[in-house]
Design a protein around this nucleic acid. Structure first.
Ligand SMILES: [Mn+2]
Ligand SMILES: [Mn+2]
Ligand SMILES: [Zn+2]
Ligand SMILES: [Zn+2]
Lengths: 125, 125
DNA sequence: TTTCATCTTGCAACAGAGTTGCGAATATAG
DNA sequence: CTATATTCGCAACTCTGTTGCAAGATGAAA
């Protein structure tokens, strides 16, 4: 894996953002940096490297956020935290401290969790 | 809201299915019943009526499932249950009995929950 | 520093999911 | 049965993401 301009710019952008960013938002923020296909490919690479994680929002919009709290940066590391999606300002935030408790029927083998709460974020409520 | 052939066929299909169905799956199952645009519009109507709920799967695929356990059929009624997405057979199931417990930082106002666990379903594990 | 295999990029073309406008068809209230 | 609002089919379109390929950039090794 090579370090390129596009990759480090995009990685910095995501790292410095307090909210998860969509492809469209990244494209707007890096205006003219590179082709939109390159953004898709860079994002894939960052996810593969475990630098960034992909979030499917409740409205189906794909967002990317920094793996702040992850020491393990292999691409298989789990993200067992909740995300909060604000219905007003559309921001998506990682709530890394919140760990949900639940009891599944046996026979289900869980390997991944995707948990998003929607409503109003502190800024909007 | 009117009862049409397309609507009742699609509603029955979803009601009789043990797993959530995507637009594509519904189109395949009702082959030739109606136009694909009609399927989209019928699904929107069923969701508005509260007969069916929409699930955004971890892979971003939109699926529809019956509101079995919902007595309230207004379009704003909540769906506070977990969904299970099987990575092998791609089935998405409502686990209506499981209610997760979690503690959010104050200031967040929650109005909706979207919780999907992935792994292997009983049939596949 | 130069070489060179390999990775990355831009461009164009494509694919899939979902939306919109509009005229024709049809469900249902009266 | 008639009138009218709803629903439908079709075609065209948007949006998001993917793929193939030739050209360009990276960095390890010579
Ligand atoms: Mn993470
Ligand atoms: Mn339900
Ligand atoms: Zn907000
Ligand atoms: Zn399965």
């Amino acid at each position: 894996m090579r370090n390129t301009n596009a990759k480090s710019e995009i990685q910095n952008l995501i790292a410095e953002s307090t909210v998860a960013l969509s492809h469209t938002e990244i494209q707007a923020a890096t205006k003219g940096l590179c082709d939109r296909v390159t953004i898709y490919r860079v994002l894939d690479r960052l996810v593969d490297e475990g630098q960034v994680h992909k979030i499917i929002n409740v409205d189906g919009v794909v967002k990317y956020a920094n793996c702040h709290s992850c020491t393990d940066h292999t691409h298989t590391h789990a993200h067992a935290h909740i995300h909060f999606s604000c219905q007003k300002c559309k921001s998506v935030t990682c709530l890394t401290d919140v760990e949900p408790i639940f009891k599944l029927p046996k026979k289900y083998k869980v390997s991944e969790m995707n948990f998003t709460l929607s409503g109003l974020c502190p800024q909007c409520s």
